[in-house]
Design a protein around this nucleic acid. Structure first.
Lengths: 343, 343
DNA sequence: CATGATATCGATACCGGTATCGATACCAAA
DNA sequence: TTTGGTATCGATACCGGTATCGATATCATG
């Protein structure tokens, strides 16, 4: 029952969206001049810039990124491909990415692969179809098809969280196998020799697998082998870690150390020990991976490797932003961090 | 130095992207027919559908969602606005959303507000400019400006995780204040009377605040008040919970129960107690919120309210998908879940 | 055979921006 | 005064799809 009521038969009232043309009319210039002014693209007199900006402000112009991306051949979307969001680690990476994008005008689009290579391929393909400003994908081990896709695109691609392999374009992360090796060194330095391993989904989580390899390699170098290798397909969770630890310690009560594929599992191990009177770390040392915040609050001390997750996300964005800039100074293609072993 | 070298002056070799026109030519039909065939939009003979599909397959056509969204007035992007991704709860909601979108052709775009209303406004505004298929925003308490934006849009909007207030369009969640009240009831039923509260950022996290209100209301109904109310601005984390619990118990050693604004803080409380010989739950009952998976693996028992986070995400998507369908049967606008108190 | 309904198709006009290039104006140098 | 350069602007042609509507062909019916 607004004032529109009167115009029941006026034909030209859709006007659902304020467009650049409206701004141009309001400012008394052409669409092009308005476009240039709004983008600060130069070639516009100071007075007209002001006029256009004011007009846009007045009529509440927002701009249509779809149109602009279609025309400009590049969007301000950044595709982010992670294996899982339920995992805190990737959630924090996302957080870092979101933080890094703050103020850049870019928008993250995310896709979840659930550690499935086919799904990953589809997600990547789909994201590329958006002409994104960049792509951030987890890990270096994509399927051949996916890799080809990424190699042939003009879009800057940043692979994160890994360093062991050949990056397609840029790469921000750390060496997973080195991380595993370092942890092994640390545990050996603590005098541990009866060592077991507990992990999830190694066939899918190639990064955990690389850590395990590095870990075993170092053991071997010291004439040791894993006494137990409990590997499950159930999802990585604290409860899983607790259950597997119970099993492992039942089978091999002589273990004096357990390396887990991540902190969640290790925390589960800690809980099992606490609940069953196993002294940590005196009787058995537990070691995880990631350095999640809550680890240091646990009543018992467990070892872990602290990884710069937020920073990795932020850095990946920074690379894309820098590459997108016209005067793109050549960027470092490989940015390596080192996890810090904490015990 | 590829084979292109020879064609230094050939003019027509860009062809960077396979377009619908290419498919049309390859299939020997018009762009429109190709478009219709690929979208299964009808009005195309069976033989031509096959021809087009085959052609598209052969030349590797992918389709440009930008163009299609611009033309079709609606994209297949779904905006997701959450206060934080580092928080597992929202990470799991995102997981549910991603799961729900699996196979729908929709893509989630996410924005993080860090509990900042201005930021939220900007994120929402920005997302609306993409003509999204839908918007999923956390909570019912947006700023006035943001609310106006959401009310005036045609895009389906789903507010999640809360029920206490007036939804703009649809709403999937649970009553936070009722959840707080229920937990109070449960704790009182356990015979607890010396109750304290520990929480973070209540001025920003309105949902935690609602829980606290419901909690206090129930206490009051039973002639009780909180003995301690520790509220901090530091981020919600296990370590924060541990520190605040230490403080609270030092001030009021007579506490027999602590309600936390979430499970992370509560876990920190549990760790403090374990490390300091405070018996949980005999001496002091700890109660959190969310029902995170790891809670049940803790060596001590703590209470919590289990919330269907993944399901909420999934349901929100389902609403958007259903609304987007042409023959959109009228959907339930309010989908209420009930957290389950676990003790 | 005329007629109308139905199925199938394509030309054209957008969607809302941006790239490109030519036009115009103004000023300094020749 | 002529010439050349620079600053400023706008007409036009896209970007890659989709909506619309009219054209054509086919077929059952009167």
């Amino acid at each position: 029952m607004g004032p529109d009521k009167a115009g029941a038969q006026n034909i030209l009232v859709k006007k659902s969206r304020v467009t650049l043309a409206d701004v141009a009319v309001a400012a008394g210039v052409s669409k092009m001049t308005a476009s240039r002014a709004l983008r600060a693209a130069g070639d516009v007199s100071k007075s007209n810039v002001e006029r256009v900006l004011q007009a846009a402000q007045d009529i509440g112009y927002v701009g249509n990124p779809l149109a602009s991306s279609l025309s400009g051949q590049r969007s301000n979307l950044v595709g982010v491909v992670v294996p899982s969001v339920a995992n805190v680690v990737f959630a924090e990476v996302l957080g870092g990415i979101a933080e890094g994008m703050q103020g850049t005008g870019m928008q993250p689009v995310f896709g979840v692969t659930e550690y499935d290579l086919d799904r990953e391929y589809n997600v990547i393909r789909n994201m590329l179809s958006w002409n994104p400003a960049g792509l951030i994908v987890t890990g270096l081990d994509q399927s051949e098809d996916a890799r080809r896709l990424l190699e042939n695109t003009e879009v800057p691609v940043v692979q994160i969280m890994d360093l062991d392999g050949t990056p397609i374009d840029a790469c921000v992360g750390f060496s997973q196998s080195a991380a595993g090796a370092e942890m092994a060194d640390a545990l050996l330095a603590m005098g541990r020799r009866q060592i077991g391993y507990i992990g999830c989904d190694l066939n899918k989580d190639t990064r955990a697998n690389k850590r395990l390899e590095g870990f075993k390699r170092t053991l071997l170098k010291n004439g040791l082998e894993l006494l137990v290798e409990e590997i499950t397909e159930s999802p990585s969770a604290v409860s899983t870690g607790r259950a597997l630890t119970a099993r492992a310690l039942a089978n091999r009560p002589d273990l004096d150390c357990i390396y887990y594929s991540n902190d969640d599992l290790a925390a589960g191990g800690a809980f099992h020990c606490m609940a069953n009177g196993v002294i940590v770390p005196d009787t058995v040392v537990l070691a995880g991976f990631n350095g999640l915040d809550f680890i240091e609050s646990l009543p018992v001390k467990i070892a872990t490797s602290r990884t710069p997750r937020r920073k990795i996300g932020k850095t990946a964005v920074k690379y894309i932003v820098a590459t997108t800039k016209k005067n793109g100074a050549p960027q470092d293609k490989v940015i390596a961090y080192t996890p810090i072993v904490v015990d």
